[in-house]
């Protein structure tokens, strides 16, 4: 289980997270919603060790992961799909996957399992990743993170700018991961995507969780969406 306990974090003198607490259990999809600047991406970056905490702690299965150097978080089993994909653009699809496999993956078996989830990538293994379509790039970003065999997967706005068929594919993937016991923390702005994937939804405002509700109890026109996301 990933647990964030009263974390404060920010950039220089600007504090972004203010006592944020959350938990994501194995096999759960926890969606995090909030307006721009609410602290969603900073929270993910804090989990990855890319932003230092000034208070609170982050644990994975009871072991502290905050305070570790940034390259240690993935070794503990945390996979990250950053906003904007951040692929290694000049590298091929196969090389991007290889980077994912280096740290924790189980070699060919992991790669095979990932390529079964995204068969289109198998056809493009030798292609330079910067030349893929937006949807294929997102597939690759998720596939690369899955090559880490993560216990926890952090997805930052994975459906941004994608066509409906690609969003459906991402939904299928998240559902498949849920069945394997991976805890998914999904930062998302699309209400329909959230409602179709989430078990629980955390609404973040001013760097803290303002409301945490079960997704089953939310309708598309729920007041929380208007209040915390503005849609």
């Amino acid at each position: 289980m990933l647990r964030l306990d009263g974390i404060d974090a920010g950039y220089g003198n600007v504090q972004v997270l203010r006592g944020l607490s959350l938990e994501a259990s194995p096999g759960e999809v926890l969606c995090v919603m909030g307006r721009n600047g609410a602290g969603k991406t900073t929270m993910l970056r804090a989990i990855m060790g890319q932003v230092k905490l000034t208070a609170g702690n982050i644990t994975l299965d009871g072991a502290r992961v905050d305070g570790l150097p940034p390259h240690r978080a993935p070794r503990q089993g945390i996979g990250y799909v950053p906003q904007g994909r951040r692929l290694f653009g000049p590298m091929t699809v196969a090389e991007n996957l290889e980077i994912g496999l280096m740290t924790r993956g189980k070699g060919a078996a992991t790669r095979e399992r990932v390529l079964e989830l995204f068969p289109r990538l198998r056809e493009r293994l030798g292609q330079v990743s910067a030349t893929l379509s937006g949807g294929e790039q997102q597939m690759l970003a998720i596939a690369r993170a899955l090559c880490l065999e993560p216990q926890v997967l952090l997805l930052d706005e994975p459906t941004e700018g994608l066509q409906p068929s690609m969003i459906a594919l991402i939904r299928q993937t998240v559902t498949a991961l849920k069945a394997t016991g991976v805890a998914t923390v999904l930062v998302e702005q699309r209400v329909e995507a959230v409602l179709s994937m989430a078990d629980r939804v955390a609404f973040v405002e001013n760097g803290a969780v303002a409301e945490l509700v079960a997704a089953a109890g939310l309708a598309a026109d729920a007041p929380q969406f208007r209040r915390y996301v503005g849609v």
Binding site: Q50, P70, H71, P74, F88, I99
Partner: peptide, 18 residues
């Protein structure tokens, strides 16, 4: 491969255990 990944994007390289 590790050197090229670091060259292209340092934070993302770190996010993959480099």
């Amino acid at each position: 491969l590790v050197m090229r990944a670091t060259q292209i994007d340092r934070p993302t390289a770190q996010a993959f255990g480099i």
